[in-house]
Write a protein that binds this DNA or RNA. Structure first.
Lengths: 221, 221
DNA sequence: CTCGATATAATTGTATACATTAAACCAGAG
DNA sequence: CTCTGGTTTAATGTATACAATTATATCGAG
């Protein structure tokens, strides 16, 4: 995934991505207080890029900044359920639009992603499965042809990342999920927007059931 | 609207709000190059708070930052249409949830907003009508009880602000819009979630028709 | 005259010093 | 022992100096 528009990746951008990832996968706990000084020591940079990253994370409601520092915000079962309700209503739209607008080059990359997912699902590598699952969905957002829809779906997708990791650790669900992705992929490849939308809505509903079942039984971590 | 959680409003926050507003209402033109130095002189502050504001605007895809400065990104008719398609699918959900969860105190404020909208609509004051229209929709986002849904809808709403101003300049549409808001308000007040959702979906569809009709005939500014 | 390497100027990127804020602590009065 | 108020402290908020980058202009070779 090269940097085609020749935009320099600044330290602030790197800090943002690393920090966001650490929070989203749960490496920083909910309620944990992050200070700029501690973070600047941890990342080996000054406070300036740390601050910019924190401001962006605050805007996404991933942290809350006060005079004492930045508090990591958690996510409740109700939030997860809300997010899946929202996604079930609009993620199908992204698949539909991608089916109608995508070109062959992007479809080739799309195929590589799902082939990799199949490979790791056969191996039962949960971390890799989760990453490929993410790439599959993000690919749809990026290639649906609407920045607004992509900007809408991506934050929702990010917020449930930690829980999807748990879900795909179940080999049965991982294989189901792969089959559903394969169906969506084929519909998009055939430029059948209506089918792609329908299958995506079903896929989101299944993912929701799988994740909510686990979250509710575990009483959240 | 008091600051209940005692959080200081920093200069950076103020700059962000003023800058965002200026871009969203069209005071800075699409393609215009904003430099940190020019902005810091214009706002009378150092580059630091300007930078933080610009980073947040970049995250919302309102500007694009390069080594030359920040370019104001425009919005195409296709984007507006996409946004209304997305909103038509999820904004009704916000009304439904608000109907099911809202308390009496918030409803009293909600009533004041729509009463003001009625007042300004009778006067034909387009700027005030647009502001009350915004407050009506934002109130639903804030009181629907889901941060995720609010975070999802608010950016979409902001992006079409400039065009709604044009739409409500038409007195007939302004009165229609008021009547539709009144219907949604009554449904929420009666805690009738299904009706609130249905009326909201219709309202979004009408707003879309009104705005797209104008945008397409004007060939965009 | 054109192309390309190079110098230059203007801007963003980063580090750091200083100002401000607010929570925590402690002491003294009731 | 509890409440109050001032002091301390540890963090964020802001300004500014300096570094790095990039587009543009310039100069020279072909």
């Amino acid at each position: 995934m090269m940097n085609l528009d020749h935009k320099t990746v600044s330290i602030a951008d790197q800090v943002f991505e690393r920090l966001e990832r650490k929070i989203l996968i749960g490496e920083y706990q909910r309620g944990e207080l992050l200070t700029e000084i501690k973070l600047s020591e941890e990342f080996g940079v000054s406070r300036t890029p740390i601050r910019e990253a924190l401001r962006r994370l605050e805007q996404e409601h991933i942290i809350d900044i006060t005079a004492r520092g930045a508090t990591v915000l958690g996510i409740l079962p109700q939030d997860i359920d809300d997010i899946y309700e929202i996604r079930s209503r609009i993620e199908g739209l992204a698949s539909r639009w991608m089916a109608e607008r995508v070109n062959e080059e992007d479809m080739a990359e799309f195929r590589r992603v799902i082939d990799l997912q199949e490979f790791y699902t056969a191996k039962g590598d949960a971390d890799q499965i989760k990453d490929m699952d993410s790439r599959f969905h993000r690919m749809i957002y990026e290639k649906c042809g609407s920045v607004s829809l992509s900007d809408t779906l991506l934050p929702l997708h990010k917020r449930v990342m930690k829980f999807r990791r748990v879900s795909v650790s179940d080999q049965t669900r991982a294989e189901e999920s792969l089959a559903e992705h394969r169906g969506i992929f084929e519909a998009i490849a055939a430029h059948d927007g209506a089918l792609a939308e329908k299958l995506t809505v079903q896929h989101i509903a299944h993912a929701r059931d799988s994740i909510m079942g686990r979250v509710l039984s575990e009483k959240e971590g």
